[in-house]
Amino acid sequence: MDVDGPIISGRDLRVQYGDREILHGVSFDVQPKETIVILGGSGSGKSTLLRTMVGLEKPTSGAVWVGGTNLAQASAAELDEVRKKIGLSFQGGALIGSMTVGENVALPLRELTNLEASTIEVVVRIKLEQVGLIQFQDFMPSQLSGGMKKRAALARAMAMDPEILFFDEPSAGLDPIVAAGIDSLILNLKQALAVTIVVVTHELASAFLIADRIIVLDGGHIVAMATTDELRRSTHPRIQQFLNRVPDSEVSDDVDHLRLYTERI
């Protein structure tokens, strides 16, 4: 992924599920080694944007370039190459339930690299150490708490030393203390690893804490793309409403209303 300029860029990106268009032509750039937070409410299309950036959804039109490959037109082999250089930490962890935490972290290393078993063991221990789960290597995912699952998922996402780390709602469903722990973990990684980090969240405090820049999505459009300071000074009504946690006075559009309840997680 040795590319000059942005490591991820979207150009007039449109994604649709069936007849419903979720992203209405978004364009953005992510620079190497910066931490971008994609902020938005339910139904804003932020999860869809994340899924598109890792190749789980195909755009209906437009382009999404990740490390120099346009995922909209990539072959299966090209997609695999991109995926070996990214790591995604899923909202619910998505650890393989039939494998221990250690085996989960070792999985991509065992399948996709030619490393010796002993080397893999060392790498697994390093990754688990980084997320503070070293003593849980032999636990099954079902024995872990929500926060620990997210940490284990992060260790797995880091296993292949990716150049881009994606986080899907890292603090959703956690109590404030555990959520703060995850935030500080992301901050530590940001300093220690010098990787590009893309975080999708609806948590304001967490977004302002970890982001270099924030992309605000609303109804499938980007309403702001700015540094945290610029965003605080923004006068855009929708952003002010989001920052000040003002509820919608009424649901003006039935389609919007429906979308709130039908968007995929």
Partner: peptide, 22 residues
């Protein structure tokens, strides 16, 4: 089916481990 519901299939896919092959 359970792996689909818990996003484990997506996780395999993003790790370049094809769910069908795996």
């Amino acid at each position: 089916g359970t792996m689909k519901v818990t996003e484990e299939l997506d996780a395999l896919e993003t790790m370049a481990l094809h769910p069908i092959g795996f």
